[in-house]
C-alpha cells in the first residue's frame, strides 16, 4: 500500500477529566490535529484493562493511544 494513501485507524482511550477535556479545548481553540483518532471516553485511565487494548487491535486499529 502506498504510504501517502495509508490512513491509520487510531483508537484513543481518553480520560474524561484530562485528555478528553484537552481534546475538547483543542477543538474550541481551533488547534489542528490529524483526523485519524477515534475517541472512546473513559472515566479514568485506570479503568483500562489489557483486554480493551487487545480487542482494539483485533477490531482493526493500527495504533492505540491512551491519554490520562
Amino acid at each position: 500500500m502506498n504510504q501517502d494513501s495509508f490512513k491509520p485507524k487510531i483508537l484513543g482511550f481518553l480520560c474524561n477529566w484530562c485528555c478528553y477535556a484537552a481534546a475538547d479545548s483543542a477543538g474550541v481553540s481551533r488547534f489542528q490535529y490529524p483526523p485519524n483518532l477515534r475517541t472512546i471516553r473513559i472515566m479514568c485511565t485506570g479503568r483500562i484493562d489489557p483486554v480493551f487494548i487487545i480487542e482494539g487491535f483485533a477490531s482493526g486499529a493500527d495504533g492505540i493511544f491512551a491519554g490520562g
Binding site: 487510531i10 484530562c18 485528555c19 484537552a22 483543542a26 488547534f31 491512551a66 491519554g67
Partner: peptide
C-alpha cells in the same frame, strides 16, 4: 500502544502528542 498524559488545560500538548503518534503509526 502509547500511554501519555495531558491535563485538561494542555490542548497544545494534546495536539502535539496525537500528531507525533499518528505520524509514528
Amino acid at each position: 500502544f502509547s500511554l501519555e498524559w495531558a491535563s485538561a488545560a494542555e490542548a497544545p500538548r494534546f495536539t502535539e502528542l496525537i500528531t507525533t503518534f499518528t505520524k509514528k503509526i
